[in-house]
Amino acid sequence: MIQGKGHPKDAFLRSERLPHIWCPGCGIGIVLNAYLNALALSGIPREEVVLISGIGCTARLPGYANADSYHTTHGRSIAFATGMKIANPKLHISLISGDGDLFNIGGNHIMHAARRNIDLNVICVNNFNYGMTGGQHGSTTPAGSVTASSPYGNLEQSFNLPYMMKAMGASYVSRWTALHVRQLTRSIAKSFTVRGFSFIEVLSVCPPNFGKDNGFADAYAQMQYFREHCEIDNNADLHNAGVTFSGDRPIILGDFYHKTRPTFHDIEREIIERVRVDR
């Protein structure tokens, strides 16, 4: 066996903090890897990159990246990022957080940020439950799934995130899994170039919680499900692109939507130039 001296990504990581806190097989580490790859591909100077997150497992991700990182309060990361981006539109702000953080407690903020078309790159790692608190069900848990707080099966309908974000006014919408790393990397790199609100959903695994409770023996079993049941369709009808683990319907992935419109910052700059008297 060849003992590695240092991982090529170590320069992009706060490597003294590794190994990280995530469970064996957790997809968040893969997303971090893909994000760093995309960052390197995009050529954006790392000084201009800011990572923001809320609370939860995924929200710990920025703390491992060697860039300016902001670990804020639960669900409020989008509002925090909105303030930061408006204050300094030159920053490249990536918001990497979990489904619970962005869509359950932070649902109000994310839909308004998309409506305002704030130029943020939002990456939502969706593990279908609240991982950090022990696997309770949330707004992304597929109906019928067993979780720590839905022992008889989740009785609620789950959100279909790409459909929702397109309707809210996002400029770019895509969905991949933690297994489709190369496509994910390309999507993240593309989202850096999109002017406006871009949204990428990454379906991930939560081996000790959602996975264990829903028939996946280990992390690999759920990844294998993604490998066997995912279908890439960039022109998919998002209305029917909800996620299910029942096995009778494919999980639709793809670069679903890309249409730019003026951002908040474009219009604001125009107004400021028109009315300012301080020069």
Binding site: T72, R76, F80, T82, I86, N108
Partner: peptide, 13 residues
């Protein structure tokens, strides 16, 4: 909630 978070974000920018 968003207002308070936004002014913290702006202050950090």
């Amino acid at each position: 909630i968003g207002s308070m978070a936004a002014i913290l974000g702006a202050a950090n920018a």
